[in-house]
Design a protein around this nucleic acid. Structure first.
Lengths: 216, 216, 216, 216
DNA sequence: TATGAATGAGAATTCATTCAT
DNA sequence: TATGAATGAATTCTCATTCAT
């Protein structure tokens, strides 16, 4: 009650968590659009509707802000991957679902792609320390390994498939198409993002991955 | 007097060409290492061993210099692709050769990857105009189409494969692994560029592409 | 409830005094280490283990805080000078004692030297008003005048010695050596603060001052 | 002749040496007035009538600029000390001349005092490397040693006087009076820089130093 | 009394680019 | 063709100080 008379925590401006989250979102968009070097702290503050000084107050400097954005981006995709529940599906369906998820995730989160590119341009200098990074990930590869093993046992999939290699291939087939969308569109003179083109790409991706995995 | 003889028109011209080539090479390395926004004109001049003013003399400004670097990079890879003579090989060998070439080209030209990423971060703003871009490319896709058709006719390959989709998948499978090398290494806790890992990746790539293409 | 007992007025007041004293000590160290312009309010708060806002609450702003630190520093040295009881000593012993005291005070209170330098860099802008400053000081010069007069009357000291001039000379001989310790050490390639060097300096100081004062 | 038609080197603006010297002079004044932390690069540029960027072009950053200013200040005083030709004088006159020179040098170069204070506040971090610093100095102490030895041999001066100690005392007696002029004026309620006061101080200084040195 | 959140003005430094020769 | 000197407009980051509770 007493609270209601003043501004409630969710509404007031002086809310550290909300400010930090706002900065992170603004920074994510800015870094995604311009890369690390091209991003402007001024624009991030403006996007967040907050004082520039506050960014330094919470995130120290541009590099650490970038690292925080990256970590958040990893957390988000890992979280969604975890919600796939691949082990509840038949192996073929599970692989198809992973391919579809990967495709749609990159399609819906174009910022993730450019953030990753920036992170790698800077040689991974901004990655969270190894343990945290691995902790974020291991689940999916383990799950994929289990899916592959089940499929193999059922006589559906070929054996000897390294889940890491496969995961990288699935991601790569989706990522490259979207990441290099502009150059590819120019070179091939096609709009690669038209609804039709998207469908065709997803279809092709599934064909490649399952064509490779399935025993004839 | 002595000077006049040493700066004969032909020699001056040769110097000019050498200077331009030096600037392009220096700029390529700088842009590859730091991206467009992170690159420094000062460092480019330093790398080239030439005065900064000269860069502006020959290339107008940073953006145009970047565009020149990009165009040169495309020319280089297209030139090498043309020398593959895929049509002189059996379809299976031709595809394998393309996969191997793609892998080794990216491996040997890491600058190409980051240049492409930069070009796409900037939405292809620096691409040569469409006709020139297409002119640079068409050959390979046409060649691949012919290879696929031959394979299909021989009963080796499945039908209905879009050569553009396939080309993008081959590139993507190689590119992603190398482009995101740092983040992937951190996440999987493996050195992705050890000789053994490289062999395994190439092997996997061929397996995926041919596993997909070959009729059972 | 329990809280109410623990924040009785007297205790709160004692806390307030402790806080102010803590801030003053922290500020003294910070100003001594970095000068007025180089000192950071943040660091002062950190050194004091108190919230930055509190500094403003008690001392208004940085300049006034510096002035308070300065005044405290003067009070401290004047207090100690008063405890010398020079008039209880023979003139020669009294002078020797003043020289020794000056030397040891500067040696033990290096912060006093840099605070003084800062105060003078700022043209004395932060000095307490004149009456208070003089009130703080007059004692020592008067005492020294009495010592010199006694010595003269006893035929030991030369006459016509201005106690202010002499006081400044004693201080200067000690001060310069310590204040410029770093540059002097570099120039002369000696460690001026080794125990041996300290003894030699004090010895030299006494020799100079008494050599000057004593009639042959 | 050809030169006369365009701007001669001494007059034109595009003169690297002149620009550097102008920056150094402006920086010296600014650092002297505000200390290292209080100095403003903007003001230095303004004082020099040059673009701020040029300061960075020639001196890298504020700290290095300060170091350059310091080195120049040392060179200046050492140069003047060298021109004293103390060995051409009788020992007593030589000492008197050194005292007078020291006094007048500090009086005429108040910036030297605050620069030294700043250098020492920063623990000599900006000093030229030791060899260069010593090279700049050694002469004077050697000369003073020779003067003292001559005086001793002639039965004028006491023996066992360390020239370094004496040099520091001479400097200190002058330096402290001027460096702490503001606080001392406030404390003693006298104007320490009136013509009369200056004469009295110099007189006192000579009395102290010679009173100490001369055998009775 | 005490504190974490927030800010505006400023400060050092950077950078692409142009000048003058 | 080639170059060292010079610059204006940013850009990151800092700092004393105030707000709101």
């Amino acid at each position: 009650m007493a609270k209601a008379t003043s501004t409630a925590p969710e509404e007031r401006q002086r809310d550290a968590e909300r400010s930090q989250a706002g900065i992170l979102a603004a920074a994510r968009d800015e870094f995604a659009e311009y890369g690390l070097a091209g991003a402007r702290m001024d624009r991030i503050a403006e996007r967040a509707g907050l004082n520039k000084r506050l960014i330094y107050y919470y995130f120290e400097d541009k590099e650490r802000l970038f690292a925080s954005v990256l970590e958040q981006a990893y957390k988000d995709i890992r979280q969604q991957e975890r919600e796939l529940h691949l082990l509840d599906l038949e192996p073929v369906q599970a692989v198809r679902r992973l391919v579809e998820f990967t495709w749609h995730y990159y399609l819906d989160h174009p910022e993730f792609i450019t953030l990753l590119n920036s992170a790698n341009l800077h040689r991974g200098r901004h990655l969270p320390d190894i343990e945290r990074a691995q902790a974020l990930n291991s689940t999916l590869v383990d799950t994929l390994a289990e899916v592959l093993e089940r499929g193999r046992r059922e006589g559906l999939f070929r054996g000897g498939v390294d889940p890491v290699q496969l995961y990288v291939s699935i991601a790569g087939i989706a990522y490259f198409y979207l990441s290099n969308n502009h150059t590819l569109s120019a070179i091939f003179g096609r709009d690669l993002l038209s609804p039709k083109a998207r469908n065709e790409r997803l279809s092709h991706m599934s064909d490649v991955i399952l064509g490779y995995l399935l025993r004839s």
